[in-house]
C-alpha cells in the first residue's frame, strides 16, 4: 500500500507538471519556442533546489524523490525541445536551432547549479 501510494504521488506529480506546462505554453504565444525554454529552466531550478535541500545529487532516498521528481520530470520536456529545434532548423535558420540547443542546455544547467548553490 505504501509503495502504491508513492507511485501514485509520482504519477500525480507528473500529470500536474504536464498540465502546468501546457497552461504556460498556451499563455506564452510566440514565434520562437520560449515557453519550452522557460518551463525547462523553471523545472531545473526547482529540481536543483530540491536536490540541494536533500543534500547533494549522490545520496537521495527513493521516497524523498517521488513527488518533486515526478513533477519536475512531467513539467520539463526533452522531446518538445528536440522537435522544436528541428522545426527551427527547418523553417527558420540553423543558427536559431543551435541557439535554442545551447541556450536550453546552458540556462538549465545554470538554473540547476543556482538551485543547488542556494540550498548549500
Amino acid at each position: 500500500m505504501n509503495e502504491l501510494f508513492l507511485h501514485a504521488m509520482f504519477g500525480l506529480g507528473g500529470g500536474l507538471g504536464a498540465v502546468l506546462r501546457h497552461w504556460i505554453a498556451l499563455r506564452i504565444v510566440h514565434d520562437l519556442p520560449f515557453s519550452t525554454l522557460i518551463v525547462n529552466i523553471l523545472g531545473s531550478l526547482l529540481l536543483g533546489l530540491w536536490i540541494g535541500y536533500l543534500g547533494g545529487s549522490i545520496e537521495i532516498g527513493e521516497e524523498q524523490k517521488r513527488l518533486v521528481f515526478g513533477f519536475c520530470g512531467g513539467f520539463t520536456t526533452f522531446s518538445s525541445f528536440a522537435y522544436q529545434s528541428l522545426e527551427l532548423r527547418r523553417e527558420r535558420t540553423v543558427a536559431l536551432a543551435a541557439g535554442n540547443i545551447l541556450l536550453s542546455l546552458g540556462l538549465c544547467w545554470a538554473a540547476l547549479a543556482f538551485g543547488l548553490f542556494l540550498m548549500r
Binding site: 504536464a18 531545473s44 536543483g48 538549465c108
Partner: peptide
C-alpha cells in the same frame, strides 16, 4: 505529445 511524450522525457533530471 504534450502529455505522454512530455511526461516521459525530462530536461530537469537530464541536467541534474
Amino acid at each position: 505529445t504534450v502529455g505522454f511524450c512530455g511526461g516521459l522525457s525530462t530536461f530537469s533530471s537530464f541536467v541534474s
